[in-house]
Simulated assay, not measured.
Amino acid sequence: MTDSHSAKIDGLAIFVKTHLLDSFRDAANDSCGVVDINRRHLKNYSFGATFWEGSSSRIVDLGKKGGPLEGCVTFNNNDLQIQYEDLQFRCHRVNPHTGVPNGGNASKQAALMKGSSSLVFLPGMEEAFVDKGEIIIGLDADLDEGLIGAQLGLLVPTYDRNKTKITFKLLKTLYTSSSLADLPKVEEQPSSKGQQNRPRLEKIGLGVKIQNE
């Protein structure tokens, strides 16, 4: 890992915290409010669709002329991309236990094009491989708690048992609604849905499987 890689990732983390986190938090809160109208019939799909529309529209507004992100945001065919210096990234709601997007077809395909399944990521060396993976902001949000966490990381292809998978490599934890952010990462079995203070597993592969966000 070089100083330039580390400085660039640090700068990107500050950029996201300064300009984007409030949009994600507000969109998640709005989505919980929508689901609260009728929890019998409005569930996770309704939450996810509302969260995506609410967060993406807020970020598009920030990227309009005169906005703080003017010239940094593109939104075409439901594909939202954000530019920071020479780094381009997307934001996705992710599986909280793997960090891999539930949908995120564009980011997964980009990771497959950029990366090599033969890469070996040593602990603490992920930042040196930024150009070999697809940068994402992974958002953990649900209809009970709103925005639970946000992580900056890379999607990279990995090879296991004759199958290429997409894996998330953590670079920075940007936000957490619990106090676990300051504790060492531990590996545990996935907890039940909606449970608070859920640990995140950093390096578990997931097959490339395209679903709705």
Rank of each mutant, 00 (worst) to 15 (best):
residue 1 M to G: 00
residue 2 T to A: 08
residue 5 H to K: 05
residue 6 S to N: 15
residue 8 K to T: 13
residue 9 I to L: 03
residue 9 I to G: 00
residue 10 D to S: 13
residue 11 G to T: 04
residue 12 L to C: 02
residue 12 L to E: 00
residue 13 A to P: 07
residue 14 I to Y: 07
residue 15 F to R: 09
residue 17 K to Q: 11
residue 20 L to S: 06
residue 22 D to C: 10
residue 24 F to R: 06
residue 25 R to F: 05
residue 28 A to W: 14
residue 31 S to K: 15
residue 31 S to F: 14
residue 33 G to E: 11
residue 34 V to R: 03
residue 35 V to K: 13
residue 37 I to L: 15
residue 39 R to A: 15
residue 40 R to K: 15
residue 41 H to S: 10
residue 42 L to D: 00
residue 42 L to W: 01
residue 45 Y to P: 00
residue 46 S to P: 01
residue 46 S to L: 11
residue 48 G to I: 01
residue 49 A to G: 14
residue 56 S to K: 12
residue 59 I to A: 09
residue 61 D to Q: 14
residue 63 G to M: 11
residue 64 K to N: 12
residue 65 K to T: 10
residue 72 C to S: 14
residue 72 C to T: 03
residue 75 F to I: 02
residue 78 N to A: 10
residue 80 L to I: 01
residue 84 Y to T: 09
residue 86 D to W: 07
residue 91 C to V: 15
residue 91 C to H: 07
residue 92 H to C: 09
residue 93 R to E: 01
residue 93 R to I: 08
residue 94 V to F: 05
residue 95 N to W: 03
residue 99 G to S: 04
residue 99 G to E: 07
residue 102 N to Q: 05
residue 102 N to H: 13
residue 102 N to Y: 14
residue 102 N to C: 10
residue 107 S to A: 15
residue 107 S to V: 12
residue 108 K to P: 04
residue 115 G to S: 13
residue 116 S to A: 02
residue 117 S to R: 13
residue 118 S to G: 04
residue 120 V to F: 14
residue 126 E to R: 02
residue 126 E to N: 09
residue 129 F to G: 06
residue 130 V to H: 03
residue 130 V to Y: 09
residue 134 E to Q: 14
residue 135 I to S: 06
residue 135 I to N: 04
residue 137 I to T: 11
residue 139 L to M: 15
residue 140 D to E: 10
residue 142 D to R: 09
residue 144 D to G: 00
residue 144 D to L: 02
residue 144 D to P: 00
residue 145 E to Q: 14
residue 145 E to H: 15
residue 146 G to L: 11
residue 151 Q to F: 14
residue 152 L to V: 11
residue 156 V to L: 07
residue 157 P to Y: 13
residue 157 P to M: 13
residue 158 T to N: 12
residue 163 K to P: 01
residue 164 T to D: 03
residue 166 I to N: 06
residue 170 L to G: 12
residue 173 T to Q: 04
residue 180 L to S: 05
residue 182 D to M: 00
residue 184 P to Q: 02
residue 184 P to C: 10
residue 184 P to M: 02
residue 185 K to S: 11
residue 187 E to V: 12
residue 189 Q to M: 02
residue 190 P to G: 04
residue 190 P to H: 01
residue 191 S to V: 06
residue 197 N to W: 01
residue 198 R to I: 04
residue 199 P to I: 10
residue 200 R to N: 09
residue 202 E to I: 05
residue 204 I to G: 06
residue 206 L to I: 00
residue 206 L to V: 05
residue 207 G to N: 01
